[in-house]
Amino acid sequence: MSISTRQASIKELANIVEATIQGDPETYISGIATLQLAGQNDLSFFSNRKYHKFLLNTKAAIVILHPDDLENCPTNAILSDDPYLAYARIAAWLTKSNTEQNEIASTAVIEDNVVIGKNTSIGANVVIGSGCQIGDNVTLHAGCVIADDVKIADNTIMYSNVSIYSNVSIGQHCIIHSGAVIGSDGFGIANEKGRWFKVPQLGRVIVGDNVEIGANTTIDRGAIEDTIIENGVKLDNLIQIAHNVHIGENTAIAGCVGIAGSSTIGKSCAIGGGAGILGHLSIADHVHITATSLVTKSITEAGVYSSGTPLQENGQWHKNFVRFKQLDKMARRLSELEKKK
C-alpha cells in the first residue's frame, strides 16, 4: 500500500537532507511505500539489511540508502550516511499540511479570561479552564480538557481526549497523543495505623519544547517540587511517570515503562519497553537500558545495562531455574573446596 503525499522531484528531496543523487534528477514521486510494496511513483528507504532481498526487487521510483548499498539498488537513489534519519526528514516534509486552520468549534467550552493565539484550531467539545494561555498555531482536537491556568506554547498539537490538569506548562512544537493525562496527582500516601492518608500533590508538570507524549501515557504532578520533562524528550504509549521525576533532554522511552517517584533520568538516554525504574534513583547521561530491565540502584556511568532472562524454550527455562535456586549451595561448596587447597 502506498501513502499519498505531495508531488516532489528527487532533486527537491535530496536538497532537504543535503544528500547526493544517483539517477535521473527529474524523477518525481507522489507517495511513500515499503520496498516490497512500492510502485513506480513511490519513495522508499533501505536502512536494515534484513530487508536486502526487497531492495533487490523493489519497484520504487526512488530509494534512500547508504552509499555502500548503491550497487544493489535497481532504481534512482538518494545517498545518505543515515538513511533512516534522511527518510524521517523527507517524509515529514512530504506529508506536512499547508492548510491553515483558525476554527473554534461551536461546542467548545472556553472561559472568558483565556488568551488564545493566532491560527489556533479548537475542536468539538474541548474544554478550556480559567486563566489558560494558548499560543499561536496550536491544535486541540475534539474532547481535550484543559484545566485552569495551563500554558500551551506555539505550534503544539493535542489529539482527541487529552487531559491536562491545572498549572501545567507545555512547550512549543509538542505532540500529545490521545488519552494522555498530564498533571494528575502523584501516588502520595502516608500510613496512619494501617490506614492510608492522601498527601496533597502541590507541584506542577513542566514539559519542554519538541516533546512527544504517546497515547495513554500519564505524567503525575510533583508533590512539592515539579515533575520536569526537558526539551526533545520522546515518550511512547502507556508510560507511567510518577511525581517529581526529572527526565533530561533528548531521552527516548519506549512503551510500558514505569518510573517511580523522584527519580532523575539523564540526557540522551534510551529506555527499552517494559523497563521499571525504582524511586529516588539517578541515571547518568547517555545510558541505554534494555527492554524489561528492572533498575534498583542508581547508574553513574554511561553505557548499556540489562537485567532479566531472555525467552527460552519452556523445558530449558525450568532446568535453568532449578540450577539458579542451587547457586547459593554451589557457591558455598566451591568456597569450602578453595579453603582446602
Rank of each mutant, 00 (worst) to 15 (best):
residue 219 I to R: 02
residue 45 F to M: 02
residue 183 G to K: 01
residue 13 L to W: 06
residue 328 D to G: 12
residue 3 I to T: 14
residue 11 K to A: 13
residue 127 V to T: 13
residue 180 A to E: 04
residue 168 V to G: 08
residue 59 K to A: 10
residue 240 Q to N: 10
residue 22 Q to M: 11
residue 76 N to G: 02
residue 152 I to R: 05
residue 179 G to T: 01
residue 130 S to E: 15
residue 180 A to I: 00
residue 127 V to S: 10
residue 67 P to W: 03
residue 248 G to H: 05
residue 212 E to D: 13
residue 174 C to K: 03
residue 139 T to S: 14
residue 337 L to E: 07
residue 218 T to V: 09
residue 246 H to E: 12
residue 101 Q to D: 13
residue 117 G to K: 02
residue 225 E to Y: 12
residue 102 N to F: 01
residue 65 L to W: 04
residue 53 K to F: 12
residue 225 E to H: 12
residue 223 A to S: 13
residue 78 I to M: 03
residue 114 V to T: 00
residue 274 G to F: 05
residue 57 N to V: 13
residue 23 G to W: 00
residue 43 L to N: 05
residue 293 S to F: 01
residue 3 I to G: 00
residue 315 G to E: 14
residue 290 T to G: 11
residue 15 N to D: 14
residue 125 N to I: 09
residue 239 I to N: 03
residue 314 N to Q: 14
residue 171 G to E: 02
residue 200 P to T: 07
residue 219 I to N: 04
residue 193 K to H: 15
residue 148 D to I: 00
residue 23 G to D: 04
residue 39 G to E: 10
residue 207 V to C: 00
residue 246 H to Q: 15
residue 318 H to N: 13
residue 191 N to R: 12
residue 42 D to G: 01
residue 72 N to L: 13
residue 215 A to W: 00
residue 268 S to F: 15
residue 312 Q to C: 11
residue 270 A to E: 10
residue 138 V to Y: 05
residue 70 L to I: 01
residue 263 S to T: 15
residue 172 Q to W: 05
residue 315 G to Q: 14
residue 128 I to L: 08
residue 223 A to T: 15
residue 265 I to E: 01
residue 318 H to S: 14
residue 8 A to V: 01
residue 339 K to A: 13
residue 126 V to A: 08
residue 53 K to A: 14
residue 170 I to F: 01
residue 268 S to E: 14
residue 125 N to K: 10
residue 212 E to R: 11
residue 5 T to C: 03
residue 115 V to D: 13
residue 263 S to Y: 00
residue 197 F to T: 14
residue 225 E to C: 11
residue 307 S to H: 09
residue 317 W to N: 07
residue 207 V to Q: 02
residue 139 T to H: 11
residue 72 N to R: 12
residue 319 K to E: 11
residue 284 A to Y: 03
residue 174 C to H: 02
residue 296 T to P: 09
residue 211 V to T: 04
